[in-house]
C-alpha cells in the first residue's frame, strides 16, 4: 500500500471511523424527526467520542493497563519495603529498579476519562427518555413535526 493510504487510512483508521460515527450521530440528532431516534443518534455520537479517546490511548504491542500478577507482587513487596523506610513520603522518591516499562501497558488515563463519559452518557439518555415520556403524555406523539404542529394549534386557540 502506498504511503499516503497508509498514513491516512491504516494509521488513523480508528479516528476515521470515530469521526464517521460522530457525524452519523450528529446528523441524526439534528435531522431526525423522531425523538427516540434523536436520542439513539446522541448515544452514537457519545460512543464515537469515547472511541476517539480510547484510540488515543492505544499503544502498539501493549497490554491492558493491569499489572501482571507476578510483576505486581514483586513490585508490591519492594514498595512495601520502601514504604517502611519512608512511611509518610509519597511516591516522589526515585525508585531504582524499573521493572515496569510504560510502553508495555496502554495509557490508563483515557480509559478513566471514558468511564466517566459513558456514565454521563447513560445519565443523559435516561433524563432525555424521561422527558420524552412526558412529551408523549402531553402531546400523544414523539414526532417532532407533529408536536410543533400541536403547539402551534394550541397557540392559535388561546
Amino acid at each position: 500500500m502506498s504511503e499516503i493510504t497508509s498514513q491516512y487510512l491504516i494509521d488513523h483508521f480508528n479516528f476515521w471511523v470515530a469521526v464517521v460515527l460522530m457525524m452519523i450521530g450528529l446528523y441524526a440528532m439534528i435531522t431526525k424527526n423522531n425523538l427516540i431516534k434523536k436520542l439513539i443518534g446522541m448515544s452514537i455520537f457519545q460512543t464515537a467520542i469515547i472511541l476517539f479517546y480510547v484510540s488515543a490511548g492505544v499503544k502498539e504491542g501493549a497490554t491492558i493497563p493491569i499489572l501482571e500478577h507476578h510483576v505486581a507482587e514483586t513490585e508490591q513487596v519492594e514498595a512495601g519495603e520502601h514504604a517502611e523506610g519512608h512511611s509518610t513520603t509519597k511516591a516522589s522518591s526515585s525508585h531504582e529498579v524499573h521493572a515496569i516499562n510504560p510502553d508495555d501497558y496502554s495509557n490508563p488515563l483515557p480509559h478513566v476519562l471514558m468511564l466517566t463519559a459513558i456514565v454521563v452518557g447513560v445519565a443523559t439518555l435516561g433524563v432525555a427518555l424521561a422527558v420524552s415520556q412526558v412529551i408523549y403524555k402531553n402531546y400523544g406523539t414523539l414526532e417532532e413535526d407533529e408536536i410543533l404542529a400541536k403547539i402551534k394549534a394550541a397557540e392559535n386557540d388561546g
Binding site: 427516540i36 493497563p65 496502554s106 480509559h111 471514558m114 415520556q133
Partner: peptide, 26 residues
C-alpha cells in the same frame, strides 16, 4: 484495544441498561 474497563462498562451500561431503558420507553 486493551481498554478492558471501558469495555466492561460499555457492556453493562451501553448494551445493557441503555438498551433496556430505550426499550422501556418505546
Amino acid at each position: 484495544m486493551g481498554a478492558v474497563d471501558v469495555a466492561f462498562t460499555e457492556a453493562t451500561v451501553g448494551a445493557g441498561i441503555s438498551a433496556v431503558i430505550l426499550i422501556a420507553t418505546v
